[in-house]
């Protein structure tokens, strides 16, 4: 220690080697605490839901179509798995291009003050609690969609294309499509912010090189910016998907909570998080409760994988962008 610290430099404890070591031990403990917590959580969820998983099978639990806690005491999660897939993929597809457009506009086209406002709004909307989205969905969006979109469509179909009616379903306003739309609105700021960051990582000399070739702004995007930010943008989509999968409150409030298959466009549906939120308080049967915990276990695993994959891609992207500098 002595040989590295010149004696004429007075050093505080925090900067001395021993202080440094203490600090790194504390940090390591905290960090491993987080890791241990995640592993414990997975384990708790697994052991809590082990019974139905064993009884119906690791995959069988997911593909079983019957969820009947009262009479048959059957627990097949397919309706919820399907609902989760439909809502989150649907929301991702609907939100991806608008979000990308917003990110590109904010990063490359908008004049400074406009870009500042857009970025501020993106960060703000990303921070709005989901119950607020849910309230807005229940009181404003769902009735509006019902009156101006679902009902007219339904009536039109009834007169002109009755064959469509079974696919449309009950136009009450609370159902699959409303849930998809609200989820899409919720993940737009998320995807857009991540895409914006990925675009901002592209080194300025790359843009200049394209401009120097006589590129227009859009050509600069195509030639220099998007190829380098593509992976980051995709990673953002993964993270957004993870968020949409797990989103509970707003979805539960507007999705109509019906697990009757087949699902229809306007009619009620349910997702894995929504059924957990809805049935947890009334699950008196141990098997019912354990099945809900098992749902949580699967959700946890999928969210974990999506986040790890997304995180890895973003790290690779950042490294690539630095390497180009």
């Amino acid at each position: 220690m002595q040989q590295t610290a010149p004696s004429h430099h007075r050093r505080s404890l925090a900067y001395s080697a021993s202080g440094d070591r203490v600090f790194s031990v504390i940090i390591a403990l905290l960090a491993s605490g987080v890791l241990i917590l995640a592993v414990l959580m997975a384990w708790e969820l697994y052991s809590g839901g082990a019974d139905p998983i064993r009884r119906f099978g690791l995959l069988g639990f997911l593909t079983g179509t019957e969820w009947d806690p009262v009479i048959k005491k059957q627990f097949g999660a397919w309706p919820y798995v399907l609902g989760t897939i439909l809502t989150s993929i649907g929301a991702l597809l609907l939100s991806f291009f608008p979000a990308l457009g917003a990110a590109i506009y904010a990063a490359e086209y908008a004049p400074r003050p406009v870009a500042v406002v857009i970025n501020y709004l993106l960060d703000l909307t990303a921070a709005v609690p989901s119950v607020i989205y849910g309230l807005w969905g229940i009181f404003i969006m769902a009735p509006f969609l019902r009156d101006h979109f679902y009902l007219p469509t339904y009536l039109w179909a009834a007169n002109h294309a009755p064959g469509l009616l079974p696919f449309l379903g009950n136009p009450s306003g609370y159902g699959l499509l409303t849930a998809i739309l609200i989820l899409a609105a919720m993940v737009v700021p998320f995807t857009a912010a991540l895409a914006r960051d990925a675009i901002a990582l592209v080194p300025a000399p790359q843009r200049e090189a394209a401009y120097a070739l006589g590129a227009t702004r859009w050509e600069v995007m195509q030639m220099a910016v998007l190829p380098l930010s593509r992976t980051g943008i995709i990673a953002g989509a993964f993270l957004a998907l993870g968020r949409a999968l797990g989103e509970t409150m707003a979805v539960t409030m507007v999705i109509g909570n019906s697990h009757k298959l087949p699902y229809t466009l306007f009619g009620g549906a349910a997702t894995m998080p929504s059924v957990i939120a809805n049935e947890f308080t009334e699950a008196v049967e141990p098997l019912h409760l354990e099945s809900l915990i098992a749902l949580g276990f699967y959700l946890f695993i999928v969210a974990l994988v999506l986040n790890i994959v997304g995180g890895l891609i973003i790290r690779r992207q950042a490294a690539l962008a630095r390497g180009v500098l």
């Binding site: 000399p205 200049e208 090189a209 120097a212 220099a224 190829p227």
Partner: peptide, 10 residues
């Protein structure tokens, strides 16, 4: 430019 600015992914 001073630093090579080849488009790396192309």
């Amino acid at each position: 430019f001073q630093k090579p600015t080849a488009f790396p992914t192309l």
